[in-house]
Amino acid sequence: MRFSINNKPFVLTIAGFDPCGGAGLLADIKTIEANGCYGLAVQTANTIQTEDSFLECLWEDNSFILKQLKTLLERYEISAVKIGIVQNKTILLEILQLLKTYIQNAPVVLDPVLKSSSGYDFHYEALLSEEILKNITVLTPNYDEILQLSEEENLNIKITSIVKHTNLFLKGGHHPSEKGKDTLYLFNGQKFDFYPSEEKIYEKHGSGCILSAAMASYLANGETLENACEKAKKYTEKALRSNFTKLAYHL
């Protein structure tokens, strides 16, 4: 029998370990707990990094990742999943298949981290395949990332190719003309724009991790995808305003 906690849904993050706590599993767990959920984690990689430097990434063995995941899926009633860095398409597909086997109806947020904020390139293979997209709820790239996710050069064609299979939340931190404007493209053809607040914000290490983990948390609490995106953006902006450094506070 799988375990649950009354009124506090389980949210699972599948991501890398950042020892400074600004990104990856630690940032995800802080975000998940701050948004009324209980955080569980599966580690895909161990890193040596700080908020402004990246020295090394050691990928976990695929079989070990899947054993971690299977153990949690068999024990806990997981309400939503966030996926961050994974080594390649092969392990990502295996993760998604295992999730589908155990929790078919739980939303899955995929944050395709192609490069760390300190400049490390994770060398993702192209992710825009139907077999991946049809098994997630929403993809959350920024403008730089979406340009790298397939060989297609035209941005509108890239967007169309994604929303044929899943929902897309395009982050606007690198928007070429409207910085900070995020757009949600729904599978059903609807589109929603989310504009930044006018309050002063400060650059943060791991802001994409925070946003995707917050989104998963709100989905776990029963919000619609549109509302989850809006609330996740507001939570992320709160983290960006939390102090002058690159490490966010989760208050």
Score class of each variant (00 low, 15 high):
Leu133Val: 04
Val42Ile: 11
Thr140Arg: 08
Ala23Gly: 01
Thr50His: 08
Thr90Asn: 15
Asn62Phe: 11
Lys30Phe: 02
Ile85Arg: 06
Val138Ser: 04
Thr101Ile: 13
Tyr143Pro: 01
Thr44Gly: 09
Glu152Lys: 12
Val81Ser: 05
Ala27Gln: 05
Glu60His: 10
Ile83Glu: 00
Asn154Met: 10
Glu152Val: 14
Val138Glu: 05
Thr137Val: 03
Thr50Cys: 04
Asp61Ile: 14
Thr101Lys: 15
Glu94Thr: 11
Ile136His: 02
Trp59Phe: 11
Pro141Asp: 07
Gln97Pro: 04
Phe64Arg: 13
Lys67Pro: 02
Lys115Phe: 09
Lys70Ser: 14
Asn154Leu: 12
Glu94Arg: 14
Lys70Leu: 10
Asp52Gln: 14
Lys89Pro: 08
Thr101Asp: 14
Glu131Ile: 10
Glu151Val: 10
Lys82Gly: 00
Glu151Lys: 15
Asn62Ala: 13
Asp61Asn: 15
Phe54Ala: 02
Pro112Arg: 06
Ile95His: 08
Leu96Trp: 03
Ala80Leu: 06
Ala23Trp: 08
Ala45Leu: 08
Ser53Pro: 01
Glu60Leu: 11
Ile95Asp: 09
Glu60Val: 13
Ser63Val: 12
Glu145Pro: 01
Ile146Ala: 03
Asp28Tyr: 03
Gln43Met: 15
Glu77Gln: 13
Thr90Met: 11
Thr71Cys: 10
Asn135Ser: 12
Ile157Lys: 15
Ile157Arg: 14
Cys20Lys: 00
Gly39Ser: 06
Gln104His: 14
Gln68Glu: 10
Glu153Asn: 15
Ile85Met: 15
Asp121Pro: 07
Leu155Trp: 09
Asn46Ala: 13
Ile78Thr: 02
Ile91Asp: 10
Ala126Gln: 15
Ile132Asp: 03
Tyr143Lys: 03
Pro19Ala: 09
Asn62Val: 08
Ile32Arg: 04
Leu98Gly: 09
Asp121Met: 08
Leu58Gly: 02
Asp52Tyr: 12
Asp61Ser: 12
Leu128Glu: 09
Leu149Ala: 02
Pro107Glu: 05
Ser53Gly: 03
Ile85Phe: 01
Glu51Ala: 14
Gly22Ser: 06
Lys100Ile: 03
Ile95Ser: 09
Ala45Trp: 01
Ile29Cys: 09
Asp28Thr: 07
Lys67Asp: 15
Ala41Pro: 03
Val113Lys: 00
Thr47Gln: 06
Leu58Asp: 13
Gln49Phe: 01
Tyr76Asp: 00
Leu147Lys: 15
Pro141Ser: 08
Thr44Lys: 08
Glu151Cys: 10
Lys89Trp: 06
Thr31Tyr: 00
